[in-house]
Design a protein around this nucleic acid. Sequence first.
DNA 1: AAATGTCCCAACCGCAATTCA
DNA 2: ATGAATTGCGGTTGGGACATT
Length: 242
Amino acid sequence: MVKTPYCDKKSGLKKGTWTPEEDWKLIAHVNAHGHKNWRQLPKLAGLARCGKSCRLRWVNYLRPGIKRGNYTHEEEETIIKLRTSLGNRWSVIASHLPGRSDNEIKNHWHAHLKKRFQHDEASTPKLHLSTVESIQENNYSVEVDPSPFQNSSPATYDASPSSHHTSMSDFSSMITEPASASSDGNLVIDGFADFTEENTDPISAYSWEELYEISYFSGEFLAPFVTEPQSFCPVYDVWGLL
DNA sequence: AAATGTCCCAACCGCAATTCA
DNA sequence: ATGAATTGCGGTTGGGACATT
């Protein structure tokens, strides 16, 4: 069977990091029309991206309720347990961690948890997995039992975010550019024209609450879709905790 | 201060599964 | 029933940020 490529490499579509303008276009379109057809979406939304790229961006970073960084101990233990039980079925694992995407969990596993898991395995000849073993393939309801890992010494559990760019506390310092304070105290971005290749700070660098206050969000651009921040801000709840 | 190495995240790619006509 | 179109998944990689020399 010959398939039409989901992403046509010869079409000259943009690749690489998403700009705030692209994010906003995608959010506005999905909020207004949903995402019934990812293939058609970029065209309808005015994005020079392939549908696959749009879907990935939405699922991993822009959809409502998504959480970023700062994994709790419980979340990490759940990932380790489920991965031991299910293997690299990241989408299934992600389904047990509300707000986490499979991609982010996969990255977190390779960056942090794999080492810790290997260390635990080395220090504990036979991992106690009674809870995990009780998980049935057709019933992913999981009761998280932290007991098998409670013996992990604090020294082996690295709860501190090792990467600055995903640390929530750091985002507040990242909003200084390109946003700036206007005379009335609101954050202002001069215009989409400013979001060039040289100025591609991802939208995740901003607080959604702050973005809502940016003139574009309260103006005509998203006015038809936005009534209050919580109605569409993907990580609003997280930012609200700051 | 500059060069080099390492880490880690965002995004891409290929392919399998599913849906649709 | 068939094949095209679309979606979803997991592996992989490019490149920026940070650490080390």
